[in-house]
Design a protein around this nucleic acid. Structure first.
Length: 475
RNA sequence: GGCACCGUCGCCAAGUGGUAAGGCCGAGGUCUGCAAAAUCUCUAUCGGCGGUUCGAGUCCGCCCGGUGCCUCCA
């Protein structure tokens, strides 16, 4: 059984076979750094982070490239609005990206190239296209001539005639054909610019990904990923550029993640219905967000709501409590005495079903079902070798999904910090009530004990009597 | 208008044509002074109507409802 992945190009799940055995080249479109990331960005990052982790898990060496678009109209506008240099905007939001995504336990790609560090590679490609008469200069801009590429539309399933008859194709007299797109844009006075054979300007959006993927992964590489919204025109144009240049299809598997919706509607900047990660972290733990985002298969739309995050919080807490319990039991036994532990973990049914689900186009929703069942087994298991193997299989699977980045104690603390900030928690008062209750309990004054607990419940505190004493947390 | 996609329990969410995973919520049992946590048990015939088939949530057609792309967008 091996990995199958849905290829947008064919519209089917295909067996994933890398070009070079056990080596995978993967390029994922990153973000344009002019603002803070929202949940949609997080989903894309998590999906491909999960794919990255899984590819490694099944024995591949992965060369993973994720770019930053650091020159574009929106960046220039933002810089003008704030009265700072455009580089300052980039610096600020790249740093924010790393901070916000880091909290989601997104692993670092092999390389995170920036567009502006690769202008020469882009100019080289543009020149090649111009030389082959697949691109033309017009008033300082350079456009790709769509009619020179007969397969245009192959990825998105569009045909040129349909696009032309569509109402939203812009009319532009500098283009030979309305569908032609910019490879190089002449700069206006005062804008950042680079020298080129066609005068000072800056790259069009699409060329950077073609140039950088070629630079780091070669003319043809295995996986190119991004959000569904990039299929057209971005990735379609990349194909046109790369094929035009090298005569080869650049990508073997096109992988696209579905959107995050708000009330069934796509979360997007232009609709203004987006939540930044920073805002969400004020109310919910980042790992909870990750769990929520992998609880659906990556191609399905996923509806973002507070209710869903609250559900995810419960699940994540249960997972960490399960982990704490498992760790405690594991401590009581000598794991090293188990012969061939790794082999037994690999052959465990939980590992097998994890792999089967992941192999089926990364069906993380099914993995969650298996993890829940695994947890139920662990919670009721007695301490023995079988338990240790199951526990190990369970933890390993969760980690490939990027979960359990923290420890149960730390997670609990962080959750507490988030909740208490939103609730105005008075720890002294709580501890006093718990002490009073325990005093009452000792003298079997149950009504007084219950009164204390009712008061705690009223302020949102949940208490649990354990052999080690009374524990409490915020509901 | 063109091209795609989606509609499964109150909510979230899986489901190679062979008889509906899992989670949240809810009900009941065990545990507990009572709770909580844990654990056990219970809770859907798949938007509608036709068709293909021995058999359909799963294929085909039509209808209803919703979304996306066609413009920057993860």
């Amino acid at each position: 059984m091996s990995l199958k992945i849905f290829n947008t190009m064919s519209g089917k799940k295909e067996d994933f076979v890398p070009q070079k055995e056990n080596h995978v080249g993967m390029y994922v479109c990153g973000v344009t750094v002019y603002d803070y990331c929202h949940v949609g960005h997080a989903r894309a990052a998590i999906v491909f982070d999960t794919l990255y982790r899984y590819l490694k898990y099944i024995g591949n060496e992965v060369n993973f490239i994720r770019n930053f678009t650091d020159i574009d109209d929106k960046i220039i506008n933002r810089a003008n609005e704030e009265g700072v240099e455009w580089q300052e905007i980039n610096r600020k939001y790249i740093e924010a990206f790393h901070e916000d995504m880091g909290k989601l336990n997104i692993a670092s790609p092999t390389v995170e190239p920036k567009a502006t560090d690769h202008i020469p590679e882009m100019l080289e490609m543009i020149q090649s296209l111009v030389d082959q008469e697949k691109a033309y200069e017009s008033q300082g801009d350079v456009f790709y001539s769509i009619k020179t590429f007969k397969d245009y539309g192959c990825l998105s399933g569009k045909n040129i005639e349909d696009l032309k008859s569509g109402a939203r194709v812009e009319v532009n007299e500098v283009k030979q054909d309305p569908l032609d797109f910019a490879l190089w844009k002449k700069s206006k006075p005062g804008e950042p610019s680079w020298e080129s054979p066609w005068g000072p300007g800056r790259p069009g959006w699409h060329i950077e990904c073609s140039a950088m993927s070629k630079r780091y992964l070669g003319d043809t590489f295995d996986i190119h990923g991004g959000g569904k919204d990039l299929v057209f025109p971005h990735h379609e144009n990349e194909i046109a550029q790369s094929c035009g240049c090298t005569g080869k299809q650049p990508v073997r598997y096109w992988v696209h993640n579905g959107f995050v919706n708000i009330d069934k509607e796509k979360m997007s900047k232009s609709l203004g219905n987006f939540f930044t990660l920073r805002d969400i972290y004020k109310k919910y733990h980042p790992e909870v967000l990750r769990l929520f985002l992998i609880s659906s298969q990556y191609r399905s739309p996923i509806d973002f709501s507070e209710k869903n995050l609250e559900d995810a919080t419960k699940v994540m807490s249960r997972f960490y409590e399960g982990l704490a319990g498992a760790n405690e039991k594991l401590k009581k036994m000598d794991i090293n005495s188990i012969s061939e532990l790794d082999e037994k973990v690999k052959g465990h049914p939980l590992t097998k079903s994890f792999e089967a689900a992941m192999n089926d186009d990364l069906n993380t929703a099914v993995v969650m079902a298996h993890l829940n069942e695994g947890l139920r087994h662990l919670n009721s298991a007695s301490i023995n070798e079988e338990f240790a193997i199951t526990a190990q299989a369970w933890i390993n699977s969760a980690k490939v999904l990027g979960l359990f980045a923290s420890s149960p104690e730390k997670f609990e603390e962080e959750l507490f910090a988030i909740k208490s900030k939103n609730l105005n928690i008075d720890v002294e008062k709580i501890e006093k009530l718990i002490a009073d209750r325990n005093t009452a309990r000792k003298s079997k004054n149950w009504s007084e004990a219950d009164r204390c607990r009712d008061e705690l419940t009223a302020i949102g505190v949940l208490i649990t009597d354990t052999p080690h004493g009374t524990e409490w947390k915020i509901k």
